[in-house]
């Protein structure tokens, strides 16, 4: 199930074509408006098709509403994937009533849930987490990592460019494209100057013995 916006529908198109190429036909593939907040009946309809896995592609509000409905509907599926819990786990924990609600869920984990070690520019995740906590007084989250990563790219661009005119900035970005490895992955642009989205790993949440949420990667971190 996907929300009918560019972000989610394009992922659904890719996913369905890849599944079909692998000989798997989705038993249920429907779009819902992005403003959807009630998923109970949709879940019931999906359950009636007995899927082996449920993949819900939405924005954070959709994922929250979907998981809340899943929790209270009584429907059970062998595997459930949603996008944003891996990026905003604390938001989902507070909305779903604790870490146990996320146990077993598949998602795209992002920093700080995953730690890239082979970086060549900027602070590592542990260094940034410590600096952020000291400066801001709050624990680091994906949005702060993404903001820091943007600043790193701008900093590198300014350091590389000969002048501030548009062409020079563009040449500077092209020069380090594919070579800049930060705590958020490799920065790369295509021939038209658009940033190439990286392939995110898929992870599965579990709760460790001390009651903390952790993620186990089921596809490799690239």
């Amino acid at each position: 199930m996907y929300c009918t916006n560019d972000f989610d529908q394009s992922q659904d198109n890719t996913l369905v074509s890849k599944l079909q190429a692998a000989g798997i036909t989705p038993v249920y593939n429907n779009g819902v408006p992005t403003s959807t907040s009630s998923y109970t009946v949709l879940l019931h309809n999906m359950a009636a098709t007995h899927p082996q896995a449920v993949i819900e592609l939405g924005y954070p509000n959709n994922d929250i509403a979907f998981l809340q409905a899943l929790k209270s509907s009584g429907d059970h599926f062998p595997m459930v994937f949603t996008i944003f819990p891996g990026q905003l786990p604390s938001l989902f924990e507070s909305n779903l009533g604790g870490v146990s609600s996320l146990n077993g869920l598949y998602t795209y984990p992002a920093p700080p849930l995953i730690n890239r070690s082979n970086i060549n520019y900027g602070m590592s995740l542990p260094q940034f987490s410590s600096a952020y906590q000291t400066t801001i007084g709050q624990p680091v989250n994906f949005l702060s990592v993404a903001g820091y990563n943007t600043a790193l790219v701008i900093q590198k661009t300014l350091a590389t460019a000969n002048s501030l005119n548009q062409l020079s900035l563009r040449h500077a970005v092209s020069k380090f494209s594919g070579k800049l490895r930060t705590l958020d992955g490799t920065f790369q642009i295509n021939s038209e100057g658009a940033q190439v989205g990286e392939t995110l790993p898929v992870g599965r949440f579990s709760v460790n013995s001390s009651g903390q949420l952790q993620v186990n990667l089921v596809t490799p971190l690239q």
Partner: peptide, 25 residues
């Protein structure tokens, strides 16, 4: 950001009505 009010009824088991489960909430 959206926030949730975690009323207990949201965690109560679904009610079975004519063979189908409905949310108590």
């Amino acid at each position: 950001n959206p926030v949730a009010v975690g009323y207990h009824v949201l965690t109560v088991k679904p009610v079975n009505l004519l063979g189908q489960a409905y949310q108590p909430s």
